[in-house]
Write a protein that binds this DNA or RNA. Structure first.
Length: 619
RNA sequence: GCCUCGAUAGCUCAGCCUGGUAGAGCGAACGCCUCGUAAGCGUUAGGCCGCGGGAUCGAAUCCCGCUCGAGGCUCCA
């Protein structure tokens, strides 16, 4: 983004004298001193990329503020030092001259361009006397949706609900056995936090060559190395398989939408997210911040009967974009571009919606469990309107009972969002930060807004109730949770690791000497035939060194091949989980791995099988 | 967006306070060693000390500005 920079000073007087030409292309002038009284001095730096549009805007803003201070005399003073990415002198001079000519009823003077000048000025003491501006065109001031502005006005009531269905005051609830829930409750309700160190997963994501920041992109847009891409792919496949099993139909929709499309405009103002804007051929497009629009627009064009419902549409959005505030982005926890599995179910009425809602609750619990988290790893929050609660107490109590521990409740006096009920599973990390994983909502508004219709039993058109579910939450956030969990293990003296089905390398073979390479290669080939990710440390390093490297990569099984193994059927296998070396045949090892990774997707190794052929990504 | 802190070799960092030849470990290349469950040894290459200004005989070091990053705040439908 280019920005003209202006420092504006309201002065009693200024006096300047051109001394010598600073650049070859300096203006030819008579180096006379000049004195002006009661003047606004605007030091101007024209940046690379600025154009006359910017100049025009700058003059408007200067004139505006001069009106406020009641001054009519302006001195444009070319001042390169305000910027480090200056426009070329000829462009800058042209733009400044243009500004000079656009007098707008002001008395405009200009200091010579390209000269070293000495100057003396006296700035007035009032508050508006000094100000600086950065002028740019193209991007208007931050455009935020109405929803974002209105959000702070919602009135919420916070409680804890125990599995017996009773509501408790947060202040009076005994959190002794529910430390993480307390963190969540304080986090959400009291907004109290105390953290001053980086979350441990940031180091781990780099060390394990999973992901890293990409400075050439925008903040919050990560790059994923082969290991990270593999882990993401596996999680994506797993979640997609589970949703398809449940009855979801996978679709794909565009990642950008026209902000002025009629059905978009109103939704836009109901969804409090900051978005990326893209201007193209006069259209104002924005990047999707959820899969909702795509699926709703699609469903609108379906011809549906009540017999077709519930209809479940599913999309794995790579990516959804939310332009979160820069200070809010952290490692893989909160990103501006993220992969979100998003499943909507159109339901014919509230009865069907509630039934479907239960199914998806179970689906989400199953998915979270499959990803390697158990119920003690997350805290549930459930949110609803007072009216919905009064009419559907049993549904809400049923969900809480299933979780089997107290949950955080937020109740709204009136419906503000498009949904009447929402729950989410929150992970509380090492630093006491809570972030949402799975979630589901009952939406009573968008069926109508998007004009999605089905024909009911009476042959009347109706708008469906729509459920919004992400069974896992953002894929990147799942990785964040797995790494934070591993960091916790490490901190508490256990060996950190990833679930075996997600490990980039599951088995590493280390020959004691190069003479065993041949045998090792055959072994690797054999194991790999059975869909196990196995690699070979063919570097000519000491065994100790190779083992150490494998350990720091969190590789679960290490097989050392030497004299003994070449002539025996059993292998010496170091199992990271127990830390012991055990003797197994190849088949026994493969069976053990198959057993632990059953029902999980498999992908082939995403790096060269030979360790010596790999670039070093992170130390 | 606001506040605080930071930016030195591919990576992690020291040096900065008190200005005077740019440092270490890891990694890489090359050689030696041929090794049994967490680091074998040596040599070499590798730097606009983020960018722009300033004061100074002299700046990685002091001052100002900028950019980018991290954390906190706000925010998280």
């Amino acid at each position: 983004m280019q920005n003209m920079r202006i420092l504006q000073l309201h002065c009693d007087y200024i006096e300047f004298t051109p001394i010598k030409k600073e650049i070859k292309s300096a203006e030819e002038i008579d180096p006379q001193s000049k004195h002006l009284d009661e003047v606004v001095v605007a030091f101007v730096a024209v940046e690379d990329g600025d154009n006359s549009e910017v100049g025009k805007k700058a003059m408007n803003e200067i004139a505006e503020s001069m009106k406020k201070v009641g001054c009519n005399k302006l001195l444009l003073y070319p001042y390169a030092h305000l910027s480090s990415k200056l426009a070329s002198p000829s462009t800058a001079l042209a733009i400044i001259k243009e500004m000079e000519s656009r007098s707008d009823g002001l008395e405009v003077h200009r200091a010579p361009f390209g000269w070293t000048k000495s100057y003396k000025l006296q700035v007035k003491g009032h508050p508006l006397a000094e100000n600086s501006k950065t002028i740019s065109v193209g991007e208007e001031k931050e455009s935020t949706s109405e929803a974002l502005k209105a959000e702070s006005k919602i009135q919420s009531f916070w409680h804890i609900m125990t599995p017996d269905g009773n509501m408790h005051d947060i202040d009076k609830f005994n959190f002794a056995k529910y430390e993480n829930l307390e963190v969540l409750a304080k986090y959400e309700a009291a907004k109290k936090r105390s953290v001053d160190e980086p979350p441990p997963h940031v180091k781990l994501m780099k060390k394990l060559a999973i992901a890293d920041y990409e400075p050439a992109s925008d903040a919050g847009n990560m790059r994923f190395f082969p290991n990270g891409r593999l882990i993401k792919s596996l999680i994506e496949r797993y979640v997609t398989e589970k949703v398809v099993e449940y009855g979801g139909f996978e679709v794909e929709t565009p990642i950008m939408y026209d902000s002025h499309h009629p059905s978009m405009e109103s939704y836009f103002n109901r969804f409090p997210a900051r978005q990326y804007n893209v201007n193209s051929e006069g259209k104002q497009l924005f990047l999707r911040f959820a899969a909702c629009f795509g699926q709703f627009l699609m469903a609108k064009d379906f011809h549906m009967s009540y017999k077709n419902l519930p209809l479940r549409l599913y999309e794995l959005t790579r990516y959804s974009f939310r332009r979160e505030q820069s200070g809010e982005l952290v490692g893989l926890r909160r990103l501006r571009a993220f992969t979100m599995p998003d499943c909507h179910a159109m339901c014919k009425d509230m009865e069907q919606a509630k039934e479907e809602f239960r199914k998806r609750f179970d689906l989400s619990r199953q998915v979270i469990k499959g990803l390697g988290l158990d119920e003690s790893d997350f805290e549930m929050a459930i949110r609803f309107t007072e009216e919905f609660y009064n009419e559907n107490k049993s549904l809400i109590e049923e969900l809480v009972k299933k979780i089997g521990k107290p949950v955080l409740v937020e109740m709204w006096k009136e419906r503000f969002f498009y949904f009447v009920l929402k729950w989410e599973f929150n992970y509380v990390d090492n630093l006491g930060k809570a972030s949402a994983l799975s979630t589901d909502q009952i939406d009573v508004e968008n069926g109508k807004r998007y004009n999605i219709e089905f024909t009911d039993e009476m042959n009347k058109p109706q708008n469906p109730i729509i459920l919004h579910n992400s069974p896992s939450g953002a894929v990147e956030r799942v990785i964040y949770v797995l790494l934070e969990k591993a960091a916790k293990d490490q901190r508490e003296g256990r060996k950190p690791g990833l679930p075996l089905w997600l490990a980039p390398t599951q088995v590493r073979v280390i020959p004691v000497k190069p003479e065993f390479l041949n045998y090792s290669e055959k072994l690797v080939e054999n194991i790999s035939q059975h869909d196990v990710r196995v690699d070979l440390d063919d570097r000519n390093e000491s065994v100790g060194k190779s083992i150490r490297d494998a350990e720091t990569e969190w590789i679960r099984y290490i097989i050392v091949i030497g004299e003994k193994e070449v002539s025996a059927t059993k292998l010496s296998i170091r199992d990271r989980k127990s830390g012991n070396v055990k003797e197994l045949t190849v088949d026994e090892l493969i069976n053990e791995i198959k057993e632990e990774t059953k029902d999980k997707p498999f992908l082939k190794m995403n790096m060269n099988r030979y360790v010596s052929k790999r670039p070093q990504i992170m130390v």
